[in-house]
Write a protein that binds this DNA or RNA. Sequence first.
DNA 1: ACGACAAATGATATGTTGTAACATGCTACA
DNA 2: TGTAGCATGTTACAACATATCATTTGTCGT
Lengths: 153, 153
Amino acid sequence: MDHVEKIIGHAEQQCKAHGVRLTVKRKQVLAGLIQSDKALSAYEIVDFCTRHYGQTMPAMSVYRILEFLEHEHLVHKLSLANKYVACAHISCGHAHAVPQFLICRQCSKVKEISIQPATIAELRQSVNEAGFKLVTTQLEMNCLCEGCIAQAA
Amino acid sequence: MDHVEKIIGHAEQQCKAHGVRLTVKRKQVLAGLIQSDKALSAYEIVDFCTRHYGQTMPAMSVYRILEFLEHEHLVHKLSLANKYVACAHISCGHAHAVPQFLICRQCSKVKEISIQPATIAELRQSVNEAGFKLVTTQLEMNCLCEGCIAQAA
DNA sequence: ACGACAAATGATATGTTGTAACATGCTACA
DNA sequence: TGTAGCATGTTACAACATATCATTTGTCGT
Ligand SMILES: [Zn+2]
Ligand SMILES: [Zn+2]
Ligand SMILES: [Zn+2]
Ligand SMILES: [Zn+2]
């Protein structure tokens, strides 16, 4: 049982606990994202599934499935990059806090982190002073990953 | 001379100083964004211009013009919302720092702020600890504006 | 003023991303 | 086994964005 399957197993447990089904197609999409180990656009997922599972995966299905997976917190949508990434904490057990995402501009690798609550509080404070209210503390930041930094040097 | 024209005047000065031209079409797009006082999608700008200036504005032109205006720091592209907003500091004179944007989910109003350097430093520190490097400190945050908060209450 | 060059815009086509609407198939449960 | 609800298939189209080449307009040296 490899790494990906183990995560899928956890995801399946989670879904069962919520009274929803992780169907074959949904597993395919999630597994694709996990295997890729980076953020993919919806159509990249279409291509991935079509190539790996021997039948064309309609874009419509991918969007529907992504919506489902996001709702189950198994996948995160990254608006900054218009891509989708598997949650990094599917196997952790603990319910995960609102995440922040570091997105490599170069290669779409994503790190899902939790910034210091104090820092978040300062951010929220700045927002409040401007008369706005934060709707979510999910942040997305344009970054370069370790690999791409090394490559650039 | 109204508020919008005054800002346009400043923009024109700025362009002249950079040896580039703020043409009629470019002024129309910029004025549209300023008047709207919120972020607009490229096609909303197309509609605005077509309605207000009596001839159809091709989408292609809008994209080209937005690219120009962004390059001149007169307009900012908001990836989080897939929209464009006029810079809030065109008339300020001082060269503006890397901004952070508070975007109202409800009505697309945008506040362009400058978060405490100390907070930014903490963010950068978190990113470095994760092995990534920030490419830009421009942040975009999902918010509700004053008006929409009041309305919701 | 004239011609040459570069910048800006027009026009058309096409690529990419995302949703609407309705048909069909599958699963769980009475 | 019927049936109700969920999931997927199919088709069409809307919204967002870029590529390419033609035409117009502004700039500058002569
Ligand atoms: Zn997560
Ligand atoms: Zn990278
Ligand atoms: Zn600005
Ligand atoms: Zn608002």
